[in-house]
Design a protein around this nucleic acid. Structure first.
Ligand SMILES: NC(=O)c1ccc[n+]([C@@H]2O[C@H](COP(=O)([O-])OP(=O)(O)OC[C@H]3O[C@@H](n4cnc5c(N)ncnc54)[C@H](O)[C@@H]3O)[C@@H](O)[C@H]2O)c1
Ligand SMILES: NC(=O)c1ccc[n+]([C@@H]2O[C@H](COP(=O)([O-])OP(=O)(O)OC[C@H]3O[C@@H](n4cnc5c(N)ncnc54)[C@H](O)[C@@H]3O)[C@@H](O)[C@H]2O)c1
Lengths: 208, 208
DNA sequence: CCCTTATTGTGAAAAATATAACATTATGAT
DNA sequence: ATCATAATGTTATATTTTTCACAATAAGGG
């Protein structure tokens, strides 16, 4: 199904909200319950569902369990998603130590670093030398990489890993990378996130 | 000036791209140069500029230096922006050790944690007990907080800090917080970022 | 079994955003 | 000094996204 990034982000939010509703003991929900939980309107919820052919019962709403199955299947959460982290520095290490991804069915299969002193094959997420990445990606069928290397190294690394079979990159380096053919690059740019927040806070202060 | 989040993100990107052009020795640029560098169309660049009353010279383009001054002033980068980090765990520590924010005129004035063993008043970014946050925010005039506490603590902390004067929060906890009156909350949700990437990579694979 | 009510599913309207078009105007060449 | 040109700035157009509105319909009560 082809759609927009925002729509898929909403599906993730619906999924998360439904788990919370389920934990509260609910077994069914209406479009406006979910809308409230996620912070959108009921029309958006129903529209999104209709895009993916998800239907409920008129007057009866939707079954949480059924919906979660559908959402999980759409989002690929019905199977373990293995990723690698490249750059075992501050942020890379934080990510590798984070337990939250496992709960989401995302497993960091390994970290990679160019610095031999970072290599550690026996840590919970093994950290391997960069040279081994190609073989690792191939043998484990990895498609997704998280890129936490210094900005000057980022483009070079993207070119290497996409040639090795990586199809999607979550890039933390604060620059726009040229994406090689067939490779999606999403960016997490914390400097820009902060700048943005600063702007809107300042605007709010001024107009007040 | 009131506008959209996307527009301000583009301004940040223009700024960053202009610094790169400047480093390459350029002193002026045309809307299509900048558009290429940022990955938008020239019309968008000129539209964004016109929103903020930024004008260039017909046939002559824009002066990089002048433009940077204007963009920096719009984005509040003409003065040091102080922020605090709350939750000195894995991700909070990574942020506090990161030098990249300083280059952007963003200073992490302090970190805060509820765990006494995390307190360290003599580290480059001092880590203080949570109890001191209210006084610190007030005395330093801090408006922005980065929230890196466990998800269950996040809402409580937001309520405390917004009551203490925080106007903008960059939240890393993977849940939707209720934003108190007059407080903007932006989210960095890495689980969702990864889910999103996984979805589009899977879709690409299937339709290929 | 029919009638009321609540909620879906979707098609149409509105709003927001992006793209294109072009009239305007500086620049530099002739 | 005039003209051709190139790039802006803004208006118009197109597209995308969101919101609204309501017909369709399942559920439950009398
Ligand atoms: N730490 C943060 O809070 C933060 C915030 C915003 C953005 N970032 C960005 O994230 C990236 C990483 O930041 P960090 O603070 O973790 O940096 P860091 O210096 O702590 O870590 C970078 C790691 O990458 C490794 N590395 C360098 N070149 C490599 C290569 N070619 N292949 C593999 N590994 C390589 C280094 O050995 C190091 O271990 C940077 O681009 C930075 O701008 C970090
Ligand atoms: N580490 C990651 O890579 C990562 C990735 C995605 C999301 N997150 C989110 O970021 C947040 C932090 O993650 P982390 O891995 O750094 O966790 P962490 O457990 O390493 O750190 C959390 C810190 O917050 C402190 N804390 C707890 N309650 C507090 C309170 N009320 N006030 C102040 N401090 C308090 C703890 O003492 C601890 O030092 C979590 O919400 C997590 O879900 C982290």
């Amino acid at each position: 199904m082809i759609t927009t990034k925002n729509c898929i982000i909403r599906l993730s939010r619906y999924k998360n909200a439904l788990y919370r509703l389920q934990a509260l003991g609910f077994v069914k929900f209406f479009s406006d319950n979910l809308a409230d939980a996620v912070g959108v309107t009921a029309a958006v919820v129903r529209k999104d569902f209709s895009v993916f052919g998800i239907s409920g019962n008129k007057k009866g709403g939707y079954q949480i369990e059924t919906l979660l199955e559908k959402l999980n299947s759409i989002l690929g959460k019905d199977r373990l998603q293995k990723v690698v982290v490249i750059g075992a520095g501050h942020i890379g290490s934080a990510l590798m130590r984070y337990r939250g991804f496992e709960k989401e069915g995302i497993k960091i299969a390994a970290g990679f670093d160019i610095d031999p002193s970072k290599v550690n094959r026996s840590s919970p997420v093994p950290i391997l030398p960069l040279e081994e990445i190609k073989g690792f990606i191939k043998s484990h069928g990895i498609k997704i990489a998280v890129l936490t290397v210094p900005d000057i190294a980022a483009q070079e690394v993207v070119d290497i890993i996409s040639a090795s079979g990586i199809k999607g990159v979550l890039n933390f380096a604060p620059l726009r990378l040229k994406s090689p053919e067939g490779c999606i690059i999403n960016n997490v740019n914390l400097e820009i996130e902060l700048e943005n927040l600063i702007y809107f806070v300042n605007v709010m202060e001024k107009t007040k």
